[in-house]
Design a binder for these strands. Structure first.
Lengths: 343, 343
DNA sequence: ATGAAAGCGCTAACAC
DNA sequence: GTGTTAGCGCTTTCAT
């Protein structure tokens, strides 16, 4: 912060224009009436001085910072970057800025950032909750509106925007079983302990049980953190003596890992094995294989969450748990197109 | 901001602990000596009251907000999200938070956000400059350190972190010409008027001229904004009477569009046509085709930019224009693997 | 080792 | 219409 020239303040403007502080303040916020010629004088003084209002001082005074905090797992995950985009578009329309942080699924980082953001007096927060107790949030909740996205924390009275993960996974699994007749299905999940992962696994099992299929422990790989983990898990599955007919990955990161593993064994979906995943991977549209997915409306999740947050900041409404629909997008990797060809 | 219980202040803590304001302040910042038992008293008061320091008030006083501003084109573009990740990781290590904004390549949004961020007293900014005059930045530059990333603004004395776009595009084009013997090469660029786009186009042309190849106007589609634009441009190229042997897309967004267009015509790269692009698309690793690319170190760009920014914020160094290396990654889509197979 | 008072830049009462 | 005063929550002289 060296050789930073002192910025002119409202006081300098007042002196330059020969008016009082309050008059300048009035002009800046164009509140109440100011005589046009006075206003002109002030505007001119602002211009010649290059005055810019100090939002920190203003924020301290009016107790409004026009900032919200957003904590997601990892912005390089396209699903989250689309959510963030939805949030920012809403925030912009309200003249709010967004402080962004990545938690990397670590509760410690999540806690750190909620603390920092709160100290910075953000007016609301949108959080993708990591696994682990949310006890630490309780004192905060009285003071700052929070909305959870992607995952819910059921024991907490906090608004959330999610999708029906159990049902989505159930439907996707059912497609594999009913429309393709697969019975030997591998499952690769992301981090357990968060609702997305837990519920999807439940949905998967429900479909299996419903059709009398017993899960094969060897083909179930839970709690993977990175694409690399998904890659390894898939390799184990493929190289086991018990190769499945289909693989279900619980999110886009695992799907990426699984795809690489198939590549490794020169396996093609759906020719050699079927692959479906929760989460769409939109950018892969032009690439092969075309994945059959249970898609989530990422951008809309962000928009909804932001809208709910602003409503709460406005003092309206209290608790709102929104569950957005997922969509089964049948493309090639499940084997549907092969069936068609064979007919 | 309704039913927000008034947060306890340092004053309340002082009263509760029976000490002065300054003593509390000292404990919080653990500056100078405080008698252990006094410190204990204060700590206890902080705990019982649930006191959290107000960073806005602190920021106003010490003129330090521990925040930086980041303006990129679009966070849903994986290239930018990786850059942002690099920035945040450095910022976190310095205890700084990041205000993030998307400019959507619109100068108006860029201007708006630089103004807002400056008013919020961020201590530095990292910007992906949109096309258009950067005159508006001149007054700011004296007051706040700025680092440009991805693209440079040559007429401005501002630090930047970029790659050698001209050379990268030249090398990639040369690969097409020399190693594959292609002479009929289409070019699809993203938004013109920014150095990435302009320089890559120059590099492309230089390679052509060097080998005595005349660019074919019909196959050059400049200034596309979205993947959809790239999709359309590629369709025009394919459906022209003059189908090229290879397509060069100037960034990952255009590559995505081009891939979809190839799909549309059931064309496969490299079997039917070669395709190469500037920017790697890492997540496509498991998908086909495997794109031959000129890769940029996105995360490193972010890290470097943040490090330079912090150096400037510390008052060290002045101007620093860093040019990071790109890397030619030869995979399948250029036709190299086909050549191997044929041998 | 601790306290009193001033002030960061702004806005909200309340005058005039 | 406009100015004066006080104060947001904190840190920083300067005393003690």
């Amino acid at each position: 912060m060296k050789n930073i020239r002192k910025q002119p303040t409202i006081k300098d403007v007042a002196r330059e224009a020969g008016v009082s502080l309050k008059t300048v303040s009035r002009v800046i916020n164009n509140s109440s009436k100011v005589k046009p010629e006075t206003r002109e004088k002030v505007l001119k003084a602002i211009k010649t001085l290059g005055y810019r209002p100090n939002a920190v001082a203003r924020g301290l005074r009016i107790k409004k910072t026009y900032s919200i905090g957003v904590i997601i797992a990892d912005i390089t995950n396209n699903f989250y970057s689309n959510i963030v985009r939805g949030i920012e578009d809403v925030a912009l329309s309200r003249n709010y800025s967004m402080l962004l942080a990545n938690s990397d699924e670590m509760l410690s980082k999540e806690k750190l950032y909620t603390r920092v953001f709160t100290e910075k007096q953000i007016e609301g927060m949108i959080i993708v909750p990591s696994a682990g107790s949310k006890e630490y949030l309780k004192p905060l909740l009285k003071n700052v509106p929070i909305v959870f996205i992607d995952r819910d924390v059921e024991e907490l009275e906090v608004s959330s925007v999610t999708v029906d993960n159990e049902r989505g996974a159930y439907e996707l699994t059912k497609h594999l079983i009913v429309d393709h007749g697969y019975t030997k299905i591998a499952y690769i999940s992301h981090t357990m302990g968060v609702t997305t992962s837990d519920k999807r696994y439940e949905g998967f099992k429900r479909a299996l049980y419903e059709f009398g299929i017993t899960p094969i422990a060897e083909l179930i790989k839970l709690d993977n953190k990175t694409a690399q983990d998904g890659y390894r898990a898939t390799k184990e599955i493929i190289s086991s003596g018990n190769r499945p007919q289909a693989i279900f990955t619980s999110n886009n990161v695992m799907a990426l890992g699984a795809m690489k593993a198939l590549e490794y064994y020169s396996l093609e979906a759906p020719r050699d094995i079927a692959l479906v995943t929760f989460d769409d991977i939109k950018w892969a549209e032009g690439f092969r294989p075309h994945l059959t997915v249970m898609s989530q409306p990422a951008y809309e999740i962000g928009r909804h969450a932001a809208n709910i947050l602003f409503k709460q900041m406005d003092g309206e409404s209290k608790l709102e748990k929104v569950v957005l629909p997922t969509q089964l997008i049948i493309r090639d990797s499940c084997g549907c197109t092969m069936i068609k060809k064979n007919n």
